[in-house]
C-alpha cells in the first residue's frame, strides 16, 4: 500500500466513518443523563461529547505547531514550516469550535453564553494567540523571514497558554461565588462505561479528522510552493 493511497483514500474514509460512528453513539447510544435530583437532563449536555474532543484536538494542534516551530528553527527545513502553518490553520478552526460549543453548553447549563470558567477562557486565550499567529504570517513578506518569525511566535504562544490557564484559575478562585462550583466537566456521570466509550470514540474521531485535514492542507501548501517555484523559473 503506497503512502499516497493511505493519504488520499484510507485516511479520509477512516475519519468519515469514525465521525459517523461518533455522532451515532452520541445520539443513539448514550443513555439519558440524570441530574443530582434524579431528573432527566435535556439533550444539551450531549454537546459535551463534541466539546471535549474538539478541545483536546485544538491543544494537540498547537502542540504540533510548537514542536514543528522548534524543529524549523533548529534545522531550517521548510517541511516543518509547512506543518506548523497547516496545523495552526486547522487548529484555529477547532479552537473556534471549542468556544462555540462551550458557549452553547454554558447557555444551556448556566443561562449565560459566556462564563469566565478557567478552561473555557484558556481556550479563548489559545484562540486569540493563534489568530495572532495567522495574522503575523500574513503580514510578513518573504518566505524565509515569514517562516522564521512565525516559528518564534509559535513557541511564545504555546508557552503563554498554560500560564493563561494558571492565571485565570487564580482569578476565578478569587471570585468563587459568581457561578458556584459548576465548572466541573459533566456532573459526575462519567464513570459509566457507555459514556467513557462514547467519549473515547469521539476523541479518536476528531483526532483522525484533524490529521486528515492537516495532511490535505499540507498537500495544498506544497503544491502551492511548487507552483510558485515553476512561476519563478518562468520569468
Amino acid at each position: 500500500m503506497s503512502e499516497r493511497m493511505l493519504r488520499d483514500k484510507i485516511l479520509p474514509v477512516l475519519s468519515a466513518m469514525s465521525m459517523l460512528l461518533a455522532i451515532g453513539m452520541i445520539i443513539f447510544y448514550l443513555p439519558d443523563m440524570k441530574g443530582a435530583m434524579g431528573e432527566t437532563l435535556d439533550m444539551s449536555f450531549r454537546i459535551f461529547y463534541f466539546h471535549m474532543p474538539i478541545a483536546i484536538t485544538s491543544y494537540l494542534a498547537f502542540t504540533v505547531v510548537f514542536v514543528s516551530s522548534i524543529l524549523f528553527l533548529r534545522t531550517g527545513k521548510y517541511s516543518y514550516d509547512i506543518l506548523s502553518r497547516s496545523a495552526a490553520e486547522v487548529g484555529v478552526i477547532f479552537a473556534f469550535l471549542v468556544l462555540v460549543t462551550g458557549s452553547i453548553w454554558a447557555k444551556a447549563t448556566w443561562g449565560w453564553y459566556w462564563v469566565w470558567e478557567p478552561r473555557l477562557t484558556t481556550s479563548l486565550a489559545l484562540f486569540l494567540v493563534y489568530v495572532a499567529y495567522i495574522v503575523l504570517r500574513q503580514a510578513v513578506d518573504g518566505a524565509d523571514k515569514r517562516a522564521r518569525l512565525a516559528s518564534v511566535f509559535g513557541i511564545l504562544g504555546f508557552i503563554s497558554v498554560p500560564l493563561s490557564f494558571l492565571s485565570i484559575r487564580l482569578w476565578r478562585s478569587a471570585h468563587p461565588l459568581m457561578f458556584g462550583d459548576t465548572s466541573g466537566s459533566s456532573g459526575g456521570g462519567l464513570e459509566g462505561t457507555s459514556l467513557q466509550l462514547t467519549l473515547l470514540v469521539n476523541v479518536i474521531a476528531f483526532v483522525l479528522l484533524f490529521i486528515t485535514l492537516v495532511v490535505y492542507k499540507m498537500q495544498n501548501e506544497m503544491m502551492e510552493e511548487r507552483a510558485d517555484e515553476i512561476r519563478a523559473s518562468l520569468d
Binding site: 521548510y78 518566505a143 524565509d144 517562516a147 517555484e229 519563478a232
Partner: peptide, 10 residues
C-alpha cells in the same frame, strides 16, 4: 569552501 545559500527555495 563550497558555500551555498538558499532563501526559501531560491
Amino acid at each position: 569552501n563550497n558555500v551555498s545559500k538558499k532563501f526559501g527555495n531560491m
